[in-house]
Amino acid sequence: MRKGTGARPKRKSAERAVLEFSLDARRGSFHLQVECAFHSDWTVVFGPSGSGKSTLLRLLAGLDRPIRGRIALNSRTLTDTAIGLHLAPGRRSTALVAQQPALFPHLSVAANVAYGLRGLDHATRAARVEEMLALAGATDLAGRRPQELSGGEAQRVALARALAPAPRLLLLDEPFSALDGVASDALLERLQLWLRKNAVQAVMATHDVTDALATSAEVLLLREGRVIALGPAAQVLAAERERIALRLRTI
C-alpha cells in the first residue's frame, strides 16, 4: 500500500502541499521508526494508544529531535540530522493542537489566541482573534479566563490559538476528545472547509476509528512505532476490519 501512494501525486496538482519525513526517534524505551510522504491535505494517523502518534506529531512540530531523520514541508526542509538542521518549533509554519489544550492560565481567552500574533497592529490582531474564535465556535468566550472554561471549550480555544499565526501545517492530536460527537463533527466540518480554503495541510492523530473514517482522505496506520499501512481510508482500514468490526460492535 505504501508503494501505491507513490502514484498519488500525479493525480493531485503539482503545487499541492506535501509533507515528507523519515524519522528514527526514541522516547524512553519507545522506539519510533517511520518513513512516509503525505499527499492528501487531510491525513489521519491512526493507531492504538502507545503506537507513537503523539511522538510523531511532536517530532513534526519540532518539539522533540529525532536521533536520525529528515522532515520536509512543501519541499522546505524543517529538520535534517545529516546536516544538523533543526528549525525551532515557532519557525516551521507548523501548529500543534495537543490533547491537553495548555492554555496560558494567566491570560484571557482573547490574549491566548493573540499570543502568536506579533508584529501586527492592534486592529488587525483583534480582527484575526475574532475570526479564529468564530471558526472554532468560541466567539462568546473571548473575555473569559481559561480556568472558567469546560474541557471542550478549552479545546476550541486551543484550536483558535494554534491557527491564528496562519500555519501551513496543522497537527491535531486527538483535539476534540472533550467535545461531544455532534459538536465535534460540526467543528471538524467547518475546520476542514477553512483549511482547504486557506491551503493548510492537516495531520490528525486519533485512536477513534469513526473519526478516522469520517474525516480522512488518507490514513497512516501506526502500531508500536512502525508504519503498518498508508493509503486511502477505506483501503487501509479494511485491513484492520477484524479489530474495527469488534470495536464498532462494542460502540
Binding site: P89, G90, L96, A98, A102, P105, G116
Partner: peptide, 15 residues
Amino acid sequence: VDTALVDAARLLGAG
C-alpha cells in the same frame, strides 16, 4: 510551570 505551556509558547513563535 507545566512544560506543555512552554511547548505551546514555543510553537506560537516565542523565543
